[in-house]
Simulated assay, not measured.
Amino acid sequence: MRETPHLAAPPPLRGNASPPDRLTWPFVWVDDEIGTMDHLWVAPAHPGPALLHRVDPTKDLQD
């Protein structure tokens, strides 16, 4: 079985740690059409980790 592409979530805060000024959660975009404009939009809109994953529309999300 193939490993599904993924991004690790940020570690949880511990003890008296303060959250950062701006949280940057991982962002995943799953679509059957991913192009240059999608990458150009995601880059400035999501400063944290981002994964744009193309899915074949005839196969959906499956192993």
Score class of each variant (00 low, 15 high):
27 F>W: 09
40 L>A: 15
17 A>H: 05
22 R>A: 11
55 V>T: 01
11 P>Q: 10
56 D>V: 07
20 P>T: 03
15 G>R: 13
32 D>F: 09
6 H>I: 01
16 N>S: 14
6 H>Y: 05
48 G>E: 06
14 R>I: 14
43 A>C: 07
60 D>S: 13
46 H>R: 15
21 D>M: 07
29 W>K: 08
18 S>C: 09
41 W>Q: 12
43 A>T: 14
33 E>S: 13
42 V>K: 06
33 E>C: 10
3 E>W: 07
21 D>L: 10
14 R>P: 00
30 V>G: 01
63 D>K: 07
45 A>F: 09
63 D>I: 12
29 W>C: 10
15 G>T: 13
3 E>K: 09
26 P>Y: 03
1 M>N: 07
15 G>V: 13
38 D>Y: 06
51 L>T: 06
21 D>R: 11
12 P>T: 04
32 D>P: 04
59 K>F: 10
1 M>G: 09
41 W>L: 14
14 R>Y: 11
28 V>C: 05
7 L>R: 00
33 E>D: 11
57 P>C: 01
29 W>M: 11
15 G>Y: 12
13 L>A: 03
61 L>W: 08
22 R>G: 07
31 D>A: 05
41 W>T: 15
3 E>V: 12
61 L>Y: 05
12 P>M: 06
34 I>H: 01
30 V>T: 00
41 W>H: 11
26 P>V: 02
43 A>L: 13
58 T>N: 12
19 P>R: 09
16 N>Q: 13
15 G>S: 08
37 M>I: 12
43 A>R: 15
4 T>W: 14
60 D>R: 15
7 L>C: 00
13 L>M: 03
16 N>I: 09
25 W>R: 14
52 L>Y: 00
18 S>H: 12
49 P>Y: 05
25 W>M: 11
24 T>M: 10
62 Q>S: 07
52 L>P: 00
63 D>R: 10
40 L>W: 11
